[in-house]
Design a protein around this nucleic acid. Structure first.
Lengths: 236, 236
DNA sequence: TTAACTTAGTGTGTAGGTTACACCTTTGCA
DNA sequence: TGCAAAGGTGTAACCTACACACTAAGTTAA
């Protein structure tokens, strides 16, 4: 680290931020997953301008010069979608030259999860439209966002094995059947009910609220809650 | 993404790269581990100039404007230490405002591993000195490099459980005892010899070369090699 | 009121994998 | 030749993961 350059008032009022060496732009992009209609869905923004006009993209944007990276991810998500206060973890950084045709852009990608109940997506100021897509049926994507999404999805599924990350997809209270449905959606397979319930209860991360939930013409289900909301446990 | 700014010839010849919005600097830093003298050691560079003059830092430096991130990590490592062609994986990106007092610097950190035999560290052009330190006895570190190193170390140890990443710390050929010493150093505990050997051989990632290694006054050891050098297997 | 339907909720046996554990082998050197 | 020092090997106990089927409790409609 030998670069002592820093911004200064440049001569060109259109481009007032000047450096001794070229600087890339830095963005954050967020892959926000939720479960809707029994399928794993991803939030995307329709791009209003070129490049990739009409394509869909991950919500994200440029990092402010005094802004921490997770703050930027949360802010962009909130601005573009109205979604706030959810689980966010850094996924990785994507910086291949040429991934954005305008200038060198390095994107720090985040993985976010939220239950459908927490979400009320409206298109924000910046975005033409925000919409949910099933991960299995994504539209054409801008830049290298398909790659980012693939990494995010792989990470999410991999973490099922050694963490309780999937609980972030559940609302405040839930039944064991709902929990099981979340897992079945994520692994895209059926899971044995007895084994699943044994496993879930042995985790010691949920507690019985004592309440019952009557939904439909059948025996009511016990209602559980996470012991430590906003904290995911590591199992191994 | 609405920023259409890009570099242009500025008026100030000292700071010719100008943008509409402020841009952070982007660096890569590499936490390169090896095993020397039966301890896990980390490569550090002594800083020649302020800030943090006299402190030690991870090898790293600014990303060239047309350079991919892993290339930058590899290049900086080679420039500063003469070390080439080793295992490299992205660790995470550290970008807290203020982590570098000069300007906003966002660092993409990499985890690197190599056997001691591959390494012939010499201080390169940029660095005053390069040296190895046991992870348990690190000197005062520049910037937030202590945090990066902590994350790197945790990641390395965590990956022992579900990958063969530790084989990257072994030379071309090795004995099972040497392999076990690597694992014992990493987990900082003794491991049962028979169980370890059963486990290692069941992995199907090493093969017996047929050779024997005579070192010292005792029975010679079989020599193994990795089946697929430069590839780490995922176990779970 | 009762029968049929729907989801909630529960236990046991088995297979496979992980752990604990001790002795003989082969070499070099004194 | 015998001693020191690391190399190399098998088995039993335990524990975890998985397969598997029925009863419980409520709603609805005949």
């Amino acid at each position: 680290m030998t670069d002592n350059s820093h911004t200064s008032a440049g001569a060109d009022p259109e481009q007032p931020y000047c450096y001794r060496y070229p600087h890339p732009a830095v963005t954050t992009d967020v892959a926000l997953f939720t479960i809707r209609d029994d399928s794993l869905q991803l939030l995307l923004i329709e791009r209003g301008q070129a490049p990739c006009q009409g394509c869909w993209a991950l919500p994200g944007g440029f990092v402010d010069i005094d802004e921490d990276l997770p703050d930027c991810a949360a802010r962009e998500l909130a601005e573009e979608t109205g979604v706030e206060n959810l689980y966010l973890e850094q996924l990785g950084t994507f910086g291949k030259p040429g991934r954005d045709p305008r200038e060198r852009v390095i994107s720090v990608a985040y993985l976010a999860l939220a239950p459908e109940s927490k979400l009320s997506v409206r298109a924000g100021d910046d975005a033409a439209a925000a919409a949910w897509f099933p991960v299995k049926a994504l539209p054409p994507l801008a830049f290298d966002h398909d790659e980012i999404i693939a990494v995010a999805h792989r990470r999410l599924v991999a973490k099922l094995d050694y963490s309780t990350i999937a609980f972030q997809l559940l609302p405040e209270t839930f039944t064991l059947s709902e929990l099981q449905q979340v897992y079945e959606t994520l692994v895209d397979a059926e899971i044995d009910k007895r084994n699943f319930r044994k496993w879930a209860q042995a985790l010691e991360v949920i507690e019985d609220t004592g309440e019952l939930r009557r939904r439909g013409s059948h025996r009511p289900a016990r209602v559980y809650r996470l012991l430590d909301r906003e904290r995911i446990a590591f199992l191994k």
